[in-house]
């Protein structure tokens, strides 16, 4: 699978110079007494300036681990990265010195998390936490940094920012807290923003507002946005491209419309079929049979084969190669052509 990736990456494409991030053949393992959990098994992905890439998958599919590996915030040990490259503007983050890496983290590649309440430090004022970015990365003094914090709180539409700069996280609502996380993440004008399930913990009405804000900021700063989610509804709205992950590998990669119209992988099909639809009201909701694989005991061959209706002998023995189904549309399935034709 690595070879097919390399040949694709070498092909020149429009906007190639805008390439911000390129992950190549990334492997992440977690070593514990119980054994080795293979969380990421050869992930390739790339992100261009101004682009929104959605990484879609169930819990345990490796989407968050991929994000944390890019950020460099995995606990190592127990995490180990035995193979792979994470190129940020051509420089491999994995071979950087810790100091250089830290300068990238937060300033060039920033991240927001699912639960903003627990992700903010409960004992420091929110303004202080935003200002810390400027104080630590830019060496600004206290009052200048605070002024920047107020500016950012205004940018993410927090009412009465000037008065609330000294308030603590628990004094804000869920949506406001996530806005503060976003303000902190975009503080230093990062090139890449990774949002790990940014709206999962929020009310539906607030979800839309936060997504709109992300979209707006992305356009304004021309950031590359990686949106990690399990919510197909969120994705359709905002993403340019989708990577579908399963069992630590990317199963399918396509432009949004293409993926929704012509899913080229049985797993993607299953996901799309399990979205509730109004015209199917009253009928039982479709669910993919079985459970996601244990990272400790990955199935042989294709990780999806135990749950796949199309599975043949070849699926049990060989990891499927990546099949090109169209421009920028690839599926890691032995029967991708058959699947996409329906």
């Amino acid at each position: 699978m690595t070879t097919s990736m390399d040949s694709r990456a070498d092909r020149p494409r429009p906007g190639e110079t805008d390439r911000l991030l390129e992950v190549k053949d990334l492997h992440v393992e977690f070593h514990s007494r119980e054994g080795v959990a293979h969380a990421i098994n050869g992930v390739d992905l790339h992100l261009d300036r101004g682009e929104t890439l959605a990484v879609l998958g169930e819990s345990g599919s490796g989407k968050s681990v991929t994000a944390q590996a890019i950020m460099g915030i995995l606990d190592m040990p127990p995490a180990v990265i035995p193979r792979g490259q994470i190129l940020f503007q051509g420089r491999d983050l994995l071979t950087m010195k810790p100091r250089e890496r830290r300068a990238v983290r937060g300033a060039e590649i920033a991240m927001i998390f699912q639960d903003a309440l627990s992700s903010l430090n409960p004992v420091f004022p929110v303004g202080w936490q935003i200002a810390e970015m400027f104080r630590q990365h830019r060496g600004l003094n206290r009052s200048d940094a605070k002024a920047q914090a107020i500016r950012l709180m205004e940018l993410v539409n927090i009412p009465a920012a000037k008065e609330r700069v000294n308030a603590y996280p628990h004094q804000f609502s869920g949506g406001m807290r996530q806005r503060i996380m976003i303000a902190m993440a975009v503080a230093l004008d990062p090139k890449v923003l990774i949002a790990d399930e940014p709206t999962t913990a929020l009310d539906v009405t607030v979800q839309a507002q936060v997504m709109d804000l992300l979209k707006e900021l992305q356009a304004q700063f021309h950031m590359g946005l990686i949106l990690i989610t399990h919510d197909l509804g969120v994705v359709a709205d905002i993403a340019d491209r989708i990577n579908v992950m399963y069992g630590g590998s990317i199963m399918e990669s396509a432009d949004v419309r293409d993926l929704y119209a012509h899913p080229g992988h049985p797993y993607t099909q299953g996901l799309l079929d399990s979205i509730p639809r109004l015209d199917m009201k009253g009928q039982e909701l479709y669910a993919i049979k079985g459970l996601p694989p244990s990272l400790m005991r990955m199935p042989s061959g294709c990780p999806f084969h135990p749950r796949c209706a199309h599975a043949q002998d070849v699926c049990r023995s060989e990891f499927p190669p990546r099949v090109e189904l169209g421009p920028r549309h690839e599926s890691a399935c032995h029967f991708a052509q058959e699947v996409v034709r329906g």
Binding site: M71, I73, G106, A110, F113, L120, V123, Q136, M184
Partner: peptide, 24 residues
């Protein structure tokens, strides 16, 4: 989680432990 955030902000380990985690 907030310690993970502090790491993601690009703070030094000393600061993450000594300021963020220790204070709590």
């Amino acid at each position: 989680d907030y310690v993970r955030t502090a790491h993601a902000k690009g703070l030094s380990t000393r600061r993450v432990v000594g300021v963020h985690a220790l204070r709590n």
